[in-house]
Simulated scan of single mutants.
Amino acid sequence: MHVLQISATVCSFISLLLLLIALGSDYWININDVHTGLWRVCSQMGCVQIGMNLPDFFHTTRAFMLIGMIAGAVSFFALCATFFHFQLGSISQAKIAAVASLLAGLCVMIAMATFTGFSGADITYYGWSFGLGWASFPLYLITGFYYATRVFMLMGLIPGVVSLFGLSAILFQCHIRILSKAMTSAIASLIAGLCH
């Protein structure tokens, strides 16, 4: 189990780091000697801050990237808390980390797809910051699925037990009144297989 925790934490840290670098750097778009980020435009003459008078897709990209960064930080700190067995009420750190990672991945995907879709026709060269933004998206999903898999494996126990009782009822010729014995065990086995 420690291998799963360590790999999920490392993956969360890398995805958060990539997202922070993508947010803070100015190499989203490269056109000749000018490179642009979400916050500044830089050339050989220097850098100029980008104000608020921009197309809406810039604001959408900024907002979803910031929400993704916050969710990614929550995921990372929740994963770090699993090592110290820190409990926040009855809330599981694994569930917090999984939901926050999946939320961060969804927000980053929306931000990157919005930026790509609205700037794609005019842009000839995307920069490395843009690539790092896209790279953080699947890493957040991988981090979320690490712990979502753990939750689903535990959820698979319940239908598995129902399936075991259904099969034993068939073997011992007991009567199940709600559904047929075969149907009960087949449905429970299918659900257990999907959750596992």
Results as ranks from 00 to 15, higher is better:
residue 160 G to C: 06
residue 117 G to F: 04
residue 117 G to E: 02
residue 186 A to K: 10
residue 165 F to H: 09
residue 24 G to N: 12
residue 168 S to L: 15
residue 131 G to E: 08
residue 81 A to C: 10
residue 99 V to C: 08
residue 73 A to V: 12
residue 138 P to K: 02
residue 49 Q to D: 15
residue 190 L to Q: 01
residue 52 M to V: 07
residue 135 A to T: 09
residue 130 F to R: 06
residue 95 K to P: 00
residue 70 I to F: 08
residue 149 T to R: 06
residue 12 S to W: 08
residue 10 V to C: 08
residue 172 F to G: 06
residue 35 H to R: 11
residue 50 I to L: 12
residue 74 V to I: 13
residue 177 R to P: 07
residue 63 A to L: 09
residue 144 G to D: 01
residue 178 I to V: 15
residue 154 L to N: 08
residue 6 I to G: 04
residue 166 G to F: 00
residue 189 S to L: 14
residue 192 A to Y: 05
residue 80 C to Q: 12
residue 178 I to Q: 09
residue 137 F to M: 14
residue 60 T to G: 01
residue 31 I to F: 11
residue 97 A to F: 08
residue 43 S to M: 05
residue 72 G to S: 06
residue 15 S to V: 01
residue 161 V to M: 13
residue 102 L to Q: 02
residue 14 I to R: 03
residue 133 G to N: 02
residue 71 A to N: 04
residue 168 S to Y: 06
residue 100 A to M: 05
residue 132 L to V: 04
residue 117 G to A: 13
residue 164 L to I: 13
residue 124 T to N: 14
residue 115 F to E: 00
residue 125 Y to V: 10
residue 113 A to W: 05
residue 18 L to P: 03
residue 158 I to W: 12
residue 15 S to E: 06
residue 125 Y to K: 11
residue 25 S to H: 06
residue 159 P to F: 09
residue 175 H to G: 07
residue 146 Y to T: 02
residue 169 A to Y: 05
residue 43 S to D: 09
residue 54 L to H: 07
residue 141 L to W: 05
residue 154 L to W: 11
residue 40 R to E: 15
residue 182 A to I: 15
residue 61 T to K: 00
